[in-house]
Simulated scan of single mutants.
Amino acid sequence: MAGAVDLSALKNRAEARNSAQSSAGTGSSAGDYSPIVEVTESNFQAEVVERSMQVPVVVDLWASWCQPCKQLSPVLEKLAREGGGTWVLAKIDVDANQRIAQLFGAQSIPTVIAIAGGQPVEAFAGAQPEEQIRQWINAILDAQRDQLPGIRAAEEGGGAESPEDPRFTEAEQALERGEYAAAEQAYQRILDAEPDNEQAKAALAQVRFTARAENADPAAISRAEENPDDVDAQLAAADAELAQQRVEEAFNRLIGTVKRTSGDERDRVREELLEMFGLFPDGDKRVADARRALASALF
């Protein structure tokens, strides 16, 4: 898909009662694993983002009035059941969850997006023949098998989910309550004990950005243009651009700010840019290009 999608920007905004119901009915531990899940904003983080760290999650954006959706959804459900836990089908009613549809930038429905490692990797729109969809899914599994441990585990009969880590559960529950500071502290404790825990690193970067993106003001971009030497304005504008999927613009803005600053201000901008890089999967060309540009700006 073109552009970046900040999946972590959709966090639980429902009341605590609804959050508890969602967690009870659609948790992602091994005991209640299902290859087909109904997803809303309240369980998006757990059922799409977190699950995609283990197996690909295929998001089906549909609506009750959409005739092609009625042809496509049963095919996806059939293939998900046949998949044996190697991937998960996440069904999202766009009428009831308009922010999710906006997040993905869906221009029409049905739209199907494959998520792996917390990021979109493939997508298609419109109803497709079953065999073509099967080949599409198999290609995703082949590409992600070495990155996502749940694929091989499911193929070998071990199930798609590893035992639930209580440390991550603590962080995820804080996210569901919208308590970003508590979630950040929980992920940081994991990293204090395991500095090389890549899942915790990625989750921490997502939480920190989400906390900022929740309050990202599109007007920050115009303010930054009017005040090029205001570091706070540039950082706020970069957050707003990234939240709008304007990835290269956000990166370039901060690289330009690095060039114009020094000392503590430069370090602050550099660290925030490096944190942004952590929101994207390994090998993302935009990150690689920005890293080279950053190195040039620093040296």
Rank of each mutant, 00 (worst) to 15 (best):
A139W: 02
S262V: 12
L242K: 00
Q71A: 13
Q67E: 14
P281M: 11
Q173H: 10
A174R: 10
A297S: 12
E41T: 00
R286G: 05
V269T: 02
E130A: 11
D229T: 08
E15W: 02
R212N: 05
P163Y: 02
G158K: 13
A240R: 12
D6F: 10
M276Y: 03
I221W: 06
A236N: 15
A9T: 14
M276S: 01
V58Y: 04
R291V: 09
A224M: 12
N227W: 03
A96W: 02
V258E: 00
A202I: 13
G31M: 06
D6Y: 05
Q98R: 13
I113Y: 10
N252E: 11
K78V: 04
V112E: 02
Q128Y: 09
G84K: 08
E176A: 12
S262P: 04
K259Q: 14
L141W: 06
V57Q: 08
E164R: 15
V287A: 07
A183L: 06
N215W: 13
D264R: 14
D95Q: 01
D60F: 06
G117S: 04
V58C: 07
A123S: 13
S64Y: 01
V247Y: 08
L148K: 07
D32E: 09
L10S: 05
L148Q: 05
D239T: 15
D196W: 00
Q54Y: 10
F280I: 02
A106N: 09
L10K: 07
L175I: 13
F168K: 00
I100S: 06
T26F: 06
S8R: 14
E122R: 12
A90K: 00
C69Q: 10
R189F: 02
Q98K: 08
A186V: 02
S222A: 14
A160M: 07
T26D: 11
E131N: 14
I140A: 03
R134Q: 13
Q245I: 01
A24E: 07
R208Y: 11
G25E: 12
V88Y: 04
I92L: 07
A160P: 14
D60H: 05
E41P: 01
A116M: 02
D95N: 01
G117K: 04
I92D: 03
Q102W: 01
V57C: 03
A9C: 09
A297K: 11
R177N: 09
T86A: 12
G283F: 02
R292A: 15
R268A: 00
R260S: 05
R145K: 15
Q102I: 01
E226G: 10
V48L: 06
Y187C: 08
L294I: 03
E265Q: 15
A20C: 02
E172T: 08
T257W: 01
A127R: 03
W136S: 00
R208T: 03
G118T: 11
V247H: 09
N215C: 04
A30E: 14
R292F: 08
